[in-house]
């Protein structure tokens, strides 16, 4: 009978991707609730040092799935490797962090088992030994509880931030097992990863950030945000569509594909609050959102909110801040 939880550990050249530890934390919580043992799996041609590092966590076993074809990540290689491991272990659950790498191969892995992933979950709970996963739908506007009725294995991925990496519990040193996995033909050839330009702006050190989103409507309207930024002594940043449209350079983009920031004040103007944006700024001290849609997900994490038109609010806010600063 299918038993146990497999958790996938992501790395690049042996360097751990921290969201993997969040998945470990999720696996440990589910493992305790379901009384199932956890096997962590590290895929790679030479990842034994990382496997040892993971063995320090409270898991039953770490498997280092190796093959010379796994030097570089490819979806073909990783799918074959993980299929081999999952077939061998016959687990109840397969958990993965919802990273770009995982979204590239894990649907293919699940498809080998006639399934899809319960993807991008923000939490999971157990009642009467059945698991309910929660995922965001409609770009974060609603939550959906999802249950899996089918045969195991159940494949699920956790969104970055669903658990904290420091929630992952250390153990007494798990056994590490190196195995060689079957990998078939690799059809795609990756080149070395690179960064586009040396980032000219480092927003991670900014104290105050004024960020604009698609609600700003046009490039000309940016002046409004610039004035507010000036009054606050803030740096200007943006959501992705603003940078895609080249209204602001790409090094001002906040989010999963841009910069991660944690200023003491983050003012979001006309930004809906898609998860890919939130992951880049949710640890800011005080978060302000101005948005005309009361249901915009940005309000879920805002300390102060104005539901209304930013074109009305921002000029007034700018003037009021100047007054306060002038007086102090």
């Amino acid at each position: 009978m299918s038993n146990g939880i497999v958790v996938f550990i992501e790395h690049r050249n042996g360097v751990l991707n921290k969201t993997s530890l969040e998945a470990v934390a999720g696996a440990q919580l589910l493992g305790s609730a379901l009384q199932q043992e956890i096997t962590a799996v590290v895929v790679g041609s030479d990842a034994s040092a990382l496997a040892q590092e993971i063995a320090a966590y409270d898991v039953a076993k770490v498997i280092n799935a190796g093959n010379a074809k796994l030097v570089d990540y490819t979806p073909d290689g990783y799918t074959d490797a993980m299929e081999h491991v999952v077939k061998q272990l016959d687990p109840h659950l397969v958990l993965l962090p919802h990273t770009y790498l995982v979204r590239d191969f894990a649907p293919k892995l699940a498809a080998r088992f006639g399934k899809s992933l319960i993807s991008d979950c923000i939490r999971a709970g157990v009642a009467d030994s059945s698991i309910t996963f929660t995922r965001r739908i409609f770009l974060g506007k609603l939550d959906a509880d999802v249950v899996s009725d089918g045969e195991p294995p159940v494949f699920a991925t956790f969104q970055s931030g669903a658990y904290r990496p420091d929630q992952a519990r250390k153990g007494n040193g798990a056994a590490v097992e190196g195995i060689t996995v079957d990998v078939g033909e690799i059809r795609m050839t990756p080149e070395a990863p690179f960064q586009e330009v040396k980032q000219a702006v480092d927003l991670s050190k900014a104290d105050i950030i004024v960020a604009v989103g698609r609600g700003i409507k046009s490039k000309d309207n940016l002046a409004l945000a610039e004035k507010l930024a000036e009054a606050l002594g803030a740096d200007l940043a943006a959501s992705r569509p603003i940078c895609d449209a080249e209204w602001l350079p790409i090094d001002r983009q906040i989010g999963s594909s841009g910069q991660t920031v944690a200023p003491k004040l983050y003012v979001a103007l006309g930004i809906s609050g898609a998860i890919q944006h939130l992951v880049g700024m949710k640890n800011s001290g005080t978060i302000v959102a101005i948005n005309k849609d009361p249901e915009a997900p940005i309000f879920d994490i805002a300390d102060y909110g104005i539901v209304g038109d930013l074109f009305e609010a921002v000029p007034v806010l700018t003037e009021e801040i100047k007054k306060i600063k002038g007086a102090s």
């Binding site: 974060g140 506007k141 939550d143 509880d145 999802v146 249950v147 159940v154 997900p297 879920d300 300390d303």
Partner: peptide, 21 residues
């Protein structure tokens, strides 16, 4: 289906937002 939506609802807020104005 091997996955099924059991319930849809508004997200729980992680912060108490003060809505102003």
């Amino acid at each position: 289906a091997h996955q099924r939506i059991a319930r849809v609802y508004l997200p729980q807020k992680s912060k108490q937002t003060q809505l102003l104005g």
